[in-house]
Design a protein around this nucleic acid. Structure first.
Lengths: 339, 339
DNA sequence: CGACCCGATGTTAGCGCTAACAGGAGCGGC
DNA sequence: GCCGCTCCTGTTAGCGCTAACATCGGGTCG
């Protein structure tokens, strides 16, 4: 198709040295005379030479590429995680090969990892939020390091994540501090470790405060499920149940819930306080602006890459979970007086 | 680190043939006796052999990888486009190496393409929404095909995109059909071709209908800029200007605008009808549910990959733009009677 | 029945690079 | 003044694979 690009020998010829000297210059080896190095560098520049990665990978056994696998990469969290990883990887001289899972099953995960390994990536980073997929990760014996990101605490393989439990506690405590007697919770899909961790944090905080632990409402991350949960909660309110505060496992569901409340004539924070999780860029513009918990995805990416690099060097590394932060906005306020 | 994996010769030894025969089986060449083929396949399975991509790339000159460059990949559109491309590429036996631009400048674009080319990708797909970046694409003489996606009509290099003009006309016509005398518009960043195409479509439809073309309000895709535009429009309404319908260049800004209207006591569609662009998963749960234009990103990905493959084979191909669709929800309604 | 052909397989030569070793020039020490 | 050391550079041998050519056996055809 194209004239097979330049080779090292072309540069060598131009600089009047052997191709090995060119290789030494490129790889920054010591013991090259400054004068020679300069000549070689000039030849490289003049020719616009670029080393062939395939040849280099063949001999070194490293492609300097990480694979990244995720489900729902179009959602805010996963997308941000990918961006964070890409930046961190780039900074470390690696690139990211991305694969999207069509469904969060063990088979799909195995396939994806397989494909990446087939591409000879140096390591695989998987977003291990879903049980099936995470389980597959444990079984897979890839010939390369396999680390998981955001898979919750109980991971068998090396992992980093944002501290979901702490985040949920932050949200719950905030509502309790406002004087609410208890806090209701809308969770994510049952097979999501992240969702379960948020439930755990919420429950722990309620228990620690001696508050009642209401029944959890099931959601699935979608605004539509939040809407359904909102309808159910509104019904409880109508029946006189003490519902003054809701914490939802993500912002999208919070949006759905706010819409449902609005339809039912309930307003936040007047009637019910609402807190989400993620801090979508849209959250400050919800009606009302949403109080929520933000995760630091850039930091997550950095720690993920640090973990991979450690594994690559055979070092053990047990990174701390990334701490989340609460952003208080108008959707949460003091408990209504009459309660 | 790991025992250097299996090589073709190991399989060959086990199957009792030459490594070349193994190669033939793997690459599906004809002229291999069925019996031999089967024995080789068994050996491959038993050993769990996987061909070394680097070696293959070295000799064939193809890595079977596309590079993808984008700014704002964390936004809905770009993320969806990436997902669409990845699926289509995967279906064609290619993988995607992703790079995120920190800023939409020509330099950043050049760097990114350079890095990808340095990785020996077979082709580069760039999200060419921003002028600077798109301009860089024209100048870059990459040694591989370079196609752009979503870069508007005027592209010099091969490109596919959703028909932004048609989408904007759809939205505008919808509002005119509802009886609005004219439609106001909040645009995206000035250096975005997509944004300008939407302006063009809006203007064309107004002109065709003989409606007045109001001054465009400047936005930058963010909810915050939509909020600001909402404030400005509310002010106009207060001054008695005829503002009964607004079309915004994306849903995020529409959200901001709805929030601002709400603060000002204006409600959609009672006072003003609002239409967005993108159809975020959240859009049906805005208050009120948002009428908007949806782009088919899966189709965009497919056509993008088809375009790349065509270039790779030296074929010319001028794919049609992908048609968008209007989704009518509660945020748009008939013009108020009193006007 | 010998020339020919074709399908199935093996052999050889590189793809462009790095690692390991070889060699040669310069220099200090005794 | 010769040994041995340190730099610098060149030579050689693969990494694992595919393409091109060589080979060989068996069938076809005149």
């Amino acid at each position: 198709m194209h004239p097979r690009g330049l080779a090292m020998s072309d540069v060598a010829a131009r600089a009047g040295v052997s191709h090995q000297t060119v290789s030494r210059v490129i790889n920054g080896h010591p013991n090259v005379a400054p004068h020679t190095r300069e000549r070689v560098e000039r030849a490289i520049r003049e020719l616009g030479y670029r080393p062939n990665t395939a040849a280099r990978a063949l001999v070194t056994g490293s492609t300097r590429t990480f694979g990244f696998v995720a489900v729902n990469i179009n959602q805010y969290g996963p997308a941000q995680t990918m961006v964070g990883l890409e930046k961190a990887a780039r900074a470390a001289g690696y690139s990211l090969s991305v694969t999207v899972l069509d469904e969060a099953t063990a088979d799909a995960m195995r396939d994806a990892v397989d494909r990446l390994v087939g591409q000879s990536v140096d390591a695989v980073v998987a977003l291990g939020t879903y049980d099936d997929a995470a389980e597959a990760l444990h079984e897979i014996s890839a010939p390369v390091p396999l680390v998981s990101v955001q898979s919750g605490g109980s991971a068998v393989e090396p992992a980093v994540g944002v501290d979901q439990v702490a985040g949920a506690r932050l949200a719950t405590r905030h509502l309790l501090d406002l004087g609410h007697r208890t806090v209701h919770h809308v969770t994510g899909p049952a097979d999501s470790q992240e969702a379960r961790d948020r439930v755990a944090g919420w429950r722990a905080e309620l228990t620690a405060a001696g508050a009642a632990v209401p029944e959890v409402l099931q959601g699935d991350w979608t605004p539509s499920s939040g809407h359904a949960a909102g309808k159910r909660l509104a019904e409880r309110v109508r029946r006189g149940v003490d519902v003054t505060a809701v914490f939802l496992a993500n912002d999208q569901m919070a949006l759905g819930l706010l819409a449902a409340f609005h339809e039912e004539g309930l307003e936040a924070p007047r009637d019910v306080s609402v807190v989400g999780f993620d801090d979508l860029p849209e959250a400050p513009y919800f009606t009302p602006p949403l109080t929520t918990v933000r995760q630091d995805f850039a930091e997550l990416g950095r720690r993920g890459v640090a973990l991979v690099l450690a594994r690559l060097e055979g070092r053990e590394l047990h990174p701390d979970p990334v701490p989340p932060r609460l952003f208080v906005r108008a959707s949460s306020g003091p408990a209504p007086h009459g309660t």
